[in-house]
Nucleic acid binder design. Structure first.
Length: 806
DNA sequence: TCCAAGAGACTTTTT
DNA sequence: GTCTCTTGGA
C-alpha cells in the first residue's frame, strides 16, 4: 500500500525534505535562486494540512506579490487534488478524466484553499483591518471605520499637495509635495509621530514638514482613508495596544510562513513578531508546541532597501526566534543550495559576482545541470543599436530552435524608460511582446475615475474621490462652484459630501451650476440603492452607464477614447474575475485588491510573447533565454549608487537576480552612449559588474582592461562615427575646446584634456585620464583613481587640476 | 466653464 | 519622448 503521507516529500532533495517536514518552532530557509523555494513552501503547507492535520484557517502565508500568492494557491490546489485522487479513486491524477480532475479541484478549493490567508503583507493586513480597525485607539484621537478607503501613492501625493499649497500656503516649487510625502512616509515607518517630528526637527523646513505630516494624518482620517504605510502601521499599534485583538489573531494563526523574507522591513517584522509570540520577547518565547514561524529568503536577492526593506532582519532570524544556538544550527536553519534552473556557466558568473559583496550569509549555488553556452557580451554604439542587436540575437535563436518560443525569452533592464527603444525594434520586426510594469492598469485615468465612484459609494467621507468625479464626466460644475462648496464644508467642519448632498445648501451656494451638483447627488443616491443587490462587475457597468461616462467616450472619436472604453471593459472583466476567485465578493474587497494590485499581477503569461520588464519585477521568475541590457556605469549600477558602497551592493544583488533568471542562454549588452529622455547623448562606460564576471565565462566584446574601462580605440571609433552622422549633436573636436571656456567656472574649466594626462582631484586624489567623451558643452572625461572604478566627470565642474601632460 | 496649446517635469526600482 | 499641469482665449 502506497504511503499517502510521503506524497509531499517525494522527489525532494534532503534539504528540501527537512524544510517541508518542519512542523513546529522557528525555521529559516536560506534558499538560493532557483533552488526550489516555492516548491518547499507549497509542499510544506500541503504537508501541514494533510500530515499534521492543521486547519487551513490557521495558516497565514505572506508572499511578496499578489501574483505569487495566486500561483501558490493554484499549486497547492493541484497538489492537494492529486493526493485526493489517490485517496478517492486510488489512481494517479494523470489517469483521471478532465471532468473528474475539475471536480476534485473544486472540492479542494472550497474546502481548503478558500480558508487559507495567502497574500501580500498589505493585502492581508488590510483584510485584518476590515475586521478590527474600529477597535484602534489613535494617540491623537483620530478615527477610522471599516469602510475605509485605501489611497495609493498618487492619491496620497494629491492629498499632500493640497495640504502644502492650500492649507500651508507654500510654494510647491520650493516645498515639493513629493519630497514632503517621502519625508512623512519615512517618519511613519520609523514610528515617529508628527508631534515628535516637530520637536526634533530644526529649521523652518523641518517644522513645516512636521506640520504637513500632522495635517496629512488628520486629512486621511477625515477622508476615512489609509495609505500603504497605514495598512501595516495601524495593525502594529492595534496589536500592541489591544490584548484581546492580539490574542485573537495570535490564536488564529498558528502557522505563519513568509516568502522573500529578505525584503521585509521593520514594520512587517514587528507584525510577524506580534502575531507569532503574542507580544512576548521572541527569544524567550517557548510555546511552540502547536505553532511555527517559517521564513524563506535569500539575502543575496534583497533589492528593496529603498522601500525600507532590511535583509539584516533575515540574517538575525535565528537570534530573534531561536534557541541561542550558533548561526549554523540546523535546528533553526536549512540551506537550499542546489540550483535546478541554470547552466553551470550562468551560475558561476552569478556566484563570482555576488562574492564581491561584503555583507552576506555565505552560500554557494551548486549546479545540477550541464555547463551550457558561454555568456554573450555585446558592445553597441548607442541604445538604438543595442535594441537592434538584442532583437537580432533573439530572432536568430527563435529561427534556429524549433522548441523555443518567444514566450521563453525575456529582456530585462534597470529602468522602465529603457523599454521604449526595444519596443520600437520589436515592432519593426513584428515580434510579439509584452511589457510588464510601468503604468499600472489601475493608475489609468478612466479606471481611477470609475474606482473613485465606487469608493465614494462605500465611503462618503472620501472627499478626494468625490472631488475627482464631481465633474467627471462634465456636468458644468466649475472651479468656482467647487471652491464655494469646499469652503462651506471647511467652515461647518463637515465632510464635503454632506454639503453636496444638502439640496438647499447647494441651491444657495451653487449659483448657476447648482443643477449639475444636484444631478450628481441624485446619481450617487441612486447608485447607493443598488449597492447591496448588485455584484461588483454589474455595479461598475451601472456606474459607467448612469454617470454618462461611457456616452461621453462614445461621442469622443479619438483613438484615446477607444482605448479607454477597452480599459473600462477590462475593469469589468477584472471585477468578474475577482468575483470568481473570492468567497464573499463585495465592492470593498474588489477596491482593496485594485489598490494593492501591481501591473505584473494580472498579466496573461500564456501567450507566446517576449517579456520586457525591469530587473525588480523579474524577481521570482525564470526564462530559458534572458537578455540583460544597458549594462553601463550610471545606468546599472544607477548613478545614485555609484558612490555609496551599501547602495552599490544592492545594485549588485539586483544584477545577481538578473543573471540567475536565465536557464539556458544569457546575453549581456551595453551601449557606448545613450540618449537621456530625448535630449542629449551621454557617453557611458561598461558596467563594473561586467568586470566582475570572469572572462572565461564570456564571449563576444569583452573589454580588454579589467572590464570596467573601455578599450582605448573605442574613443576613436566613436569620433569617426559621430563625424559620419553629420548630426549637430556633437560639434567637431577642435571647436569643442574653444567652446568649453565659456560658462563653467570649476578649477578645471577652460583647460584642455587628453588621454594620459595626470590630474589631481580634491576628493579622490591623483588620477589618470583614460578617455574623453563628446565635445563642447557635452565634453566629459573618464579618470581612473587609485583603487576605484573609473569615474566620469565634467571637467568644467569637477574639482580637478591638471598635473602633467601624459 | 471649457478647451487647446505650451511649458515643465520626469527616470531607479513598487506594495 | 511622454505625461501632467498651467494658462489664456472663446
Amino acid at each position: 500500500m502506497h504511503n499517502l503521507n510521503t506524497t509531499f516529500l517525494d522527489g525532494l532533495n534532503p534539504a528540501q525534505k527537512s524544510a517541508v517536514n518542519h512542523h513546529t518552532g522557528p525555521l529559516l530557509v536560506v534558499a538560493g535562486a532557483g533552488s526550489g523555494k516555492t516548491r518547499a513552501l507549497t509542499h510544506r503547507i500541503a504537508h501541514l494540512i494533510s500530515e499534521h492535520g492543521v486547519d487551513p484557517g490557521e495558516i497565514l502565508a505572506v508572499t511578496f506579490t499578489n501574483k505569487a500568492a495566486k500561483e501558490m494557491k493554484e499549486r497547492l490546489e493541484i497538489l492537494l487534488a492529486q493526493r485526493l485522487s489517490k485517496i478517492q479513486f486510488g489512481q494517479p491524477w494523470a489517469t483521471l478524466q478532465l471532468a473528474q480532475q475539475r471536480q476534485l479541484r473544486n472540492r479542494i478549493y472550497n474546502e481548503t484553499i478558500k480558508e487559507l490567508w495567502i497574500g501580500t503583507f498589505h493585502a492581508l493586513f488590510a483584510r485584518l483591518l476590515r475586521f478590527d480597525i474600529n477597535k484602534f485607539n489613535d494617540v491623537n484621537g483620530l478615527k477610522w471605520t471599516r469602510q475605509f478607503s485605501i489611497y495609493d501613492e498618487s492619491d496620497a501625493q494629491t492629498l499632500v499637495k493640497e495640504i502644502v499649497t492650500k492649507e500651508l500656503q507654500l510654494d510647491p516649487k520650493r516645498y515639493e509635495p513629493k519630497k514632503i510625502r517621502w519625508a512623512i512616509s519615512s517618519a511613519k515607518n520609523k514610528g515617529i509621530l508628527p508631534e515628535e517630528l516637530e520637536e526634533e526637527s530644526e529649521g523652518r523646513r523641518g517644522k513645516l514638514t512636521a506640520q504637513a505630516y500632522r495635517l496629512y494624518r488628520q486629512s486621511l482620517a477625515a477622508n476615512n482613508a489609509l495609505d500603504f504605510d497605514d495598512l501595516l502601521l495601524i495593525p502594529v499599534h492595534l496589536l500592541t495596544q489591544n490584548k484581546q485583538v492580539r490574542n485573537y489573531w495570535h490564536e488564529r494563526f498558528k502557522h505563519i510562513l513568509v516568502d522573500e523574507y529578505q525584503d521585509t522591513n521593520r514594520t512587517q517584522y514587528e507584525l510577524i513578531k506580534l502575531l507569532v509570540t503574542n507580544g512576548e520577547d521572541p527569544s524567550l518565547f517557548n510555546k511552540w508546541f502547536n505553532r511555527s514561524i517559517f521564513v524563506v529568503g535569500d539575502a543575496d536577492q534583497s533589492i528593496y532597501s529603498f522601500r525600507a526593506a532590511d535583509f539584516r532582519i533575515l540574517m538575525g532570524f535565528q537570534k530573534d526566534f531561536g534557541d541561542q544556538e550558533s548561526d549554523d544550527s540546523t535546528k533553526t536553519m536549512v540551506k537550499l543550495e542546489e540550483n535546478y534552473r541554470s547552466t553551470s556557466t550562468i551560475l558561476k558568473a552569478a556566484n563570482f559576482l555576488i562574492t564581491k559583496n561584503k555583507e552576506r550569509i555565505d552560500k554557494v549555488l551548486r549546479a545540477t545541470r550541464g555547463e551550457g553556452d558561454l555568456i554573450k557580451l555585446t558592445k553597441c554604439d548607442d541604445e538604438i543599436a543595442e535594441a537592434e542587436s538584442v532583437v537580432h540575437q533573439l530572432r536568430l535563436i527563435e529561427a534556429a530552435n524549433r522548441d523555443l518560443k518567444w514566450g521563453d525569452m525575456a529582456i530585462l533592464y534597470r529602468t522602465n524608460a529603457q523599454s521604449r527603444v526595444i519596443e520600437e525594434s520589436l515592432v519593426r520586426w513584428r515580434i510579439p511582446y509584452i511589457v510588464v510594469g510601468g503604468l499600472r492598469f489601475y493608475d489609468r485615468r478612466e479606471i481611477k475615475d470609475v474606482l473613485a465612484y465606487l469608493r465614494l459609494l462605500i465611503n462618503p467621507a472620501d472627499t478626494v474621490s468625490l472631488l475627482r468625479v464631481l465633474n467627471v464626466p462634465r456636468r458644468g460644475i466649475g472651479k468656482t462652484t467647487v471652491q464655494r462648496l469646499t469652503d462651506a464644508s471647511d467652515q461647518l467642519g463637515i465632510p464635503l459630501w454632506d454639503v453636496v448632498s444638502d439640496k438647499e445648501a447647494v441651491l444657495s451656494l451653487g449659483g448657476r451650476s447648482a443643477k449639475g451638483v444636484i444631478q450628481f447627488c441624485e446619481l450617487i443616491h441612486y447608485l447607493k440603492t443598488q449597492l447591496e443587490k448588485t455584484s461588483p462587475a454589474d455595479l461598475i457597468q451601472l456606474v459607467i452607464e448612469k454617470s454618462g461616462y461611457i456616452s461621453e467616450l462614445i461621442n469622443d472619436a479619438t483613438d484615446h477614447a477607444e482605448e479607454r472604453r477597452k480599459n473600462l471593459q477590462e475593469l469589468i472583466n477584472a471585477a468578474a474575475q475577482y468575483q470568481d476567485e473570492n468567497d464573499n465578493p463585495d465592492i470593498q474587497g474588489f477596491l482593496a485588491s485594485a489598490a494593492l494590485a501591481s501591473d505584473s499581477d494580472n498579466k496573461d503569461t500564456a501567450a507566446d510573447r517576449i517579456t520586457l520588464m525591469t530587473l525588480h519585477s523579474s524577481k521570482g521568475l525564470e526564462f530559458p533565454i534572458v537578455s540583460l541590457v544597458g549594462m553601463e556605469q550610471g545606468l546599472f549600477p544607477s548613478y545614485r549608487s555609484i558612490d555609496d558602497p551599501a547602495a552599490l551592493e544592492e545594485e549588485r544583488r539586483l544584477c545577481y537576480v538578473g543573471l540567475t533568471r536565465a536557464k539556458e542562454k544569457l546575453f549581456l549588452s551595453h551601449a557606448c552612449e545613450r540618449r537621456i529622455w530625448g535630449g542629449s547623448r551621454e557617453p557611458a562606460l561598461p558596467s563594473i559588474f561586467l568586470s566582475e564576471i570572469p572572462d572565461e565565462l564570456l564571449q563576444g566584446d569583452i573589454p580588454r582592461t579589467g572590464g570596467a574601462s573601455l578599450r582605448r580605440d573605442n574613443h576613436l571609433e566613436r569620433l569617426v562615427r559621430v563625424d559620419r552622422e553629420k548630426t549637430n549633436a556633437f560639434p567637431h573636436d577642435t571647436e569643442a575646446k574653444n567652446s568649453i571656456r565659456r560658462r563653467f567656472s570649476g578649477p578645471g574649466a577652460g583647460k584642455s584634456w587628453s588621454v594620459g594626462d595626470k590630474v589631481m582631484h580634491a576628493k579622490f586624489g591623483e588620477g589618470e585620464i583614460t578617455h574623453t567623451f563628446g565635445s563642447g558643452e557635452k565634453m566629459s572625461i573618464a579618470i581612473k583613481f587609485k583603487g576605484m572604478s573609473p569615474k566620469i566627470l565634467d571637467p568644467r565642474l569637477a574639482p580637478i587640476q591638471p598635473l602633467e601632460k601624459g
